[in-house]
Design a protein around this nucleic acid. Sequence first.
DNA 1: GCAATGACGCTCT
DNA 2: CAGAGCGCCATTG
Length: 110
Amino acid sequence: MRRTPAYTYARIWSVVEQIPLGYVATYGDVAQGAGIPGRARSVGYALHALPPGIEIPWHRVINGRGTISLSGHAAREQARRLRVEGIPVVGMRIDLKAYRWRGGNRSLRH
DNA sequence: GCAATGACGCTCT
DNA sequence: CAGAGCGCCATTG
């Protein structure tokens, strides 16, 4: 299967759709789940290119440091939505250790 | 087709 | 914790 660029987008979006309410995932996690490990950047690009009006929990995607990568109004919007879903956002930071979504059902890391 | 840009990640300072 | 450097790759001018 070749990784046609535009095709990767749909793949990324479909992974983001699977993030359960109350949890968050990092760009790297989404990339891995989409079958393109190491291309976290592309994930950010894909989300930025999200068609308006489409129902995808983009706000549940944050960077590997556990902070929101957006800025200005967009950042506030994301933080607000996360809090609404029960995820505490301190400063621009989320407790990844407690809210990071693990694809599948792993209780232990590694 | 090359150069610059970006909702990123990891390591080292 | 903040900055700098390097890798990665899709999109745009």
